[in-house]
Amino acid sequence: MKTSMVMASSHKIFLLFFFITFLLFPTTQAQTDPYHICSPNKNFAANSAFQSDRARLLSSLASNNATDFNTATVVGRANTVHGLFMCRGDVDLTTCHQCVVNATQRLPSDCPVSKEAIVWYDECLLRYSNRSFFSTVDTRPRIGLLNTQNVSNPASFMRTLYDIMNKTANEAAKPAMGEKKYASTARQASTTRGDILAFRTVYCLAQCTPDLSSSDCSRCLSGAIGDLNWCCDGKEGGRVLYPSCNVRYELYPFYLPEAAAPTPTPAIVPLPGSQGKALTYLLKL
Rank of each mutant, 00 (worst) to 15 (best):
A172V: 05
T192Y: 13
K167W: 05
A169M: 02
A169W: 04
A169F: 03
W230L: 07
D216W: 00
K167M: 09
D216Q: 13
C220M: 07
G178I: 06
R187A: 11
L197D: 13
N166M: 09
A169Q: 06
T160Q: 12
D163I: 12
I164D: 14
T191W: 02
R219H: 09
C231F: 01
D216G: 02
R200K: 05
P210N: 03
C232Y: 04
C232P: 07
L228T: 02
E179W: 04
D216K: 00
G194E: 07
M165F: 15
V202H: 00
N170W: 02
C231H: 04
L161N: 00
P210Q: 01
R193D: 03
C232V: 07
T201R: 04
A176T: 11
A172Y: 02
T209K: 01
G226M: 06
G194N: 04
D195G: 08
C204P: 04
R159A: 13
R219M: 06
S218A: 01
D233I: 09
T185N: 09
G226D: 09
M158T: 03
R200A: 13
R159F: 03
V202N: 01
C231R: 00
D216Y: 01
L221P: 07
N229P: 03
D227V: 03
N166E: 11
Q188S: 10
A198C: 14
K167V: 11
P175M: 05
S184T: 15
I196P: 01
K181G: 08
T185W: 05
A186C: 10
L197I: 13
Y203T: 03
C232E: 02
L221A: 06
F157T: 01
A176S: 15
Q188E: 13
C208P: 01
W230R: 15
E179R: 15
A189M: 05
C217W: 03
M177T: 15
S215Q: 11
D211A: 00
C204I: 04
S213M: 10
V202D: 04
D195A: 14
R193M: 11
Q207W: 00
L221M: 07
D216L: 04
G223L: 09
D163E: 14
D211W: 00
